[in-house]
Design a protein around this nucleic acid. Structure first.
Lengths: 196, 196
DNA sequence: TTCTATTAAAGAATGGCATTCGCTTAAATG
DNA sequence: CATTTAAGCGAATGCCATTCTTTAATAGAA
């Protein structure tokens, strides 16, 4: 009974947005530039998305999911529990939170500037946490469930910390020091569990 | 040879800014509203500060310093090393990073929206780190310096993580779980050191 | 005290941006 | 084909940080 939204236009918008967000960050990217890069008009963007914030999430969501799935594969490919744990922490912190492509910067900026109506479902965060929880399970097979839970939370916390620091505080602190520290703490727990 | 800047006007601007930042957040607070609340004109604000970003830092800096000094006093007031450590972690995470007054939200928003010219000295961050490092020294007197360094970094990382989460991710995750997890990890290190 | 250079102070632009409005027109449906 | 719905578009709208321009207060020289 009426004209339909074009999946092509939507995809073009998402691709243009992703490219520009990575290039210039969320804040410096304008709706007009996204529209121009996608070959449509500024106002037409709002036929496909209700806000700039929503676009940021639509871009970030699949990116993070694929990164987490990649990480999962890499963790499982390791032979020893210790190697798995190393791969998990390294991948999570260096590969995702501190990713060079600037996707997390986009998210942090979008969250920081979110207005009253800008909401998002917690699905992505919860999904990510559950995946990490599971990865810890494969890395530390015999571990106490409570402890596994605690590790998951600590890793998520570190993830957020790195994301904030990498993107907003830039070069003030050597991040590798923080990652080493984190790894040391996890090691301490493992060694304790092993009764060493 | 000329008219002088009034310290009163400057103070009135800072107080108005602090009040408004806490009330509405950094982004929703306009220069105009700060000027109005301080009883001066919008343009006159730029005689005292070069940017909105600079105002945010001028407000946040003394607030954080006084919070850290308070924490220091509270940590030193504890009798046992264990109580000192508890007080440090609790105060840092609950009392400052997740503070209810919204000062850290202001900082996070200011950092997230900072433009090219918006720069700030790392003094405050470095000062805070050195204080935490020292507090860890009093909490764990006999500890290895390298380990103390690592703990400092971990705490700063957790601080950033909580700041980001508290302010941007709102209520999705139970923060107390993260704090408990962190404390558990620190405990693991301590027990290991104690040879338990 | 008077004059003058300096600059605080104020109001009026400026420029940029997300979002909305009103109109036009493509296309799905009967 | 006629009708109707909504995609698409150009032109607002409203908001805001920052700058420009002008006025007037005042510290210091005369």
């Amino acid at each position: 009974m009426a004209r339909q939204k074009s999946e092509q236009v939507r995809q073009a918008l998402l691709e243009a947005a992703q490219k520009l967000f990575v290039e210039k960050g969320y804040i410096a990217t304008t709706i007009g530039s996204i529209a121009r890069a996608a070959g449509t008009s500024q106002s037409n963007v709002y036929v496909y998305f209700t806000s700039k914030f929503e676009i940021a999430f639509a871009v970030f969501d699949p990116w993070l999911r694929s990164k987490v799935l990649d990480l999962e594969a890499r963790v499982e490919a390791q032979d020893t529990p210790e190697a798995r744990l190393r791969a998990l922490i390294d991948g999570l912190i260096h590969g995702i939170a501190a990713d060079r492509s600037g996707q997390t910067l986009t998210l942090v900026q979008a969250l920081a500037t979110a207005k009253a109506g800008d909401e998002y479902s917690p699905d992505l965060l919860l999904w990510t946490m559950s995946r990490i929880h599971q990865m810890i399970g494969t890395a530390l097979p015999g571990s106490d469930p409570t402890e596994r839970e605690a590790l998951t939370h600590s890793l998520m916390l570190a993830f957020d910390g790195i994301a904030l620091r990498q993107n907003l505080r830039r070069s003030e602190i050597e991040d590798s020091l923080s990652v080493d520290a984190l790894y040391m703490m996890v090691q301490a727990i493992i060694r304790r569990d092993a009764g060493e």
